[in-house]
């Protein structure tokens, strides 16, 4: 089983970890109902909480394509759950770049894994892009769609042209921090138990 081609086992691994990652994402997404500022906070929360399953996933990745397929799946799921298609190209692109970075480290180098994970995390920001790109019409849409003016005002105070750059950087930085935390957790629990 040393071939470069992905096997059914790899696809199943991808499916499982996508499901877990999505459950984590959904649980965090619930917090956004409380206040719009938390929506911007996804850039911090998701990379850290999601790091644990992802680091475990990285220990199972040995072939090119697994991270890319995962990002395609995430794009599909985000579309189905009504997050729009504007973020999809960015999601898939960040997944493919992350895949290349991890590949250059042979999927074993820890430094490359950290870098790859933090690039992967940029997809979280992809969800904000519809808000930024179509800001004016989106604001009207939100008010028309029944969000109160206050909600949309605070949403745009938190997410606009000026802050999107900061959010991407935040995603990246917390991706790195999250990767270290995730690695520590994986080492603490899974390597001792001999699962990895």
């Amino acid at each position: 089983m040393n071939s470069k081609k992905l096997t059914a086992k790899d696809f199943i691994t991808i499916g499982i970890f996508t499901a877990i990652w999505f459950v984590v994402e959904f649980a965090c997404g619930m917090l956004g109902y409380i206040h719009p500022y938390i929506v911007a906070g996804y850039a911090v929360i998701l990379p850290i909480v999601g790091a644990v399953p992802m680091m475990l996933f990285y220990t199972k990745v040995e072939k090119f394509g697994m991270i890319s397929i995962m990002s395609v799946l995430i794009a599909i799921i985000m579309f189905v759950t009504g997050m729009g298609f504007l973020g999809a190209p960015i999601t898939i692109l960040s997944g493919i770049i992350a895949d290349f970075i991890a590949k250059s480290g042979g999927y074993k180098s820890f430094k490359k894994t950290v870098l790859s994970y933090s690039v992967f995390c940029i997809w979280v920001c992809a969800n904000f892009f519809p808000v930024v790109v179509t800001a004016d019409s989106y604001r009207q849409d939100l008010i028309d769609a029944g969000f109160s003016a206050e909600y949309s005002e605070s949403l745009f105070r938190a997410i606009n042209y000026k802050t999107i750059g900061i959010l991407v950087v935040l995603c990246f930085i917390f991706g790195i921090i999250g990767a270290y935390i995730g690695k520590a957790v994986v080492r603490k629990h899974f390597e001792k138990a001999g699962i990895v």
């Binding site: 696809f11 499916g15 995962m70 799921i77």
Partner: peptide
Amino acid sequence: PDGITISLAVVMRFFPTI
């Protein structure tokens, strides 16, 4: 492609399991 199909099927099947 098979890769997407299998992975998506696993995702669908896996939510109740989780």
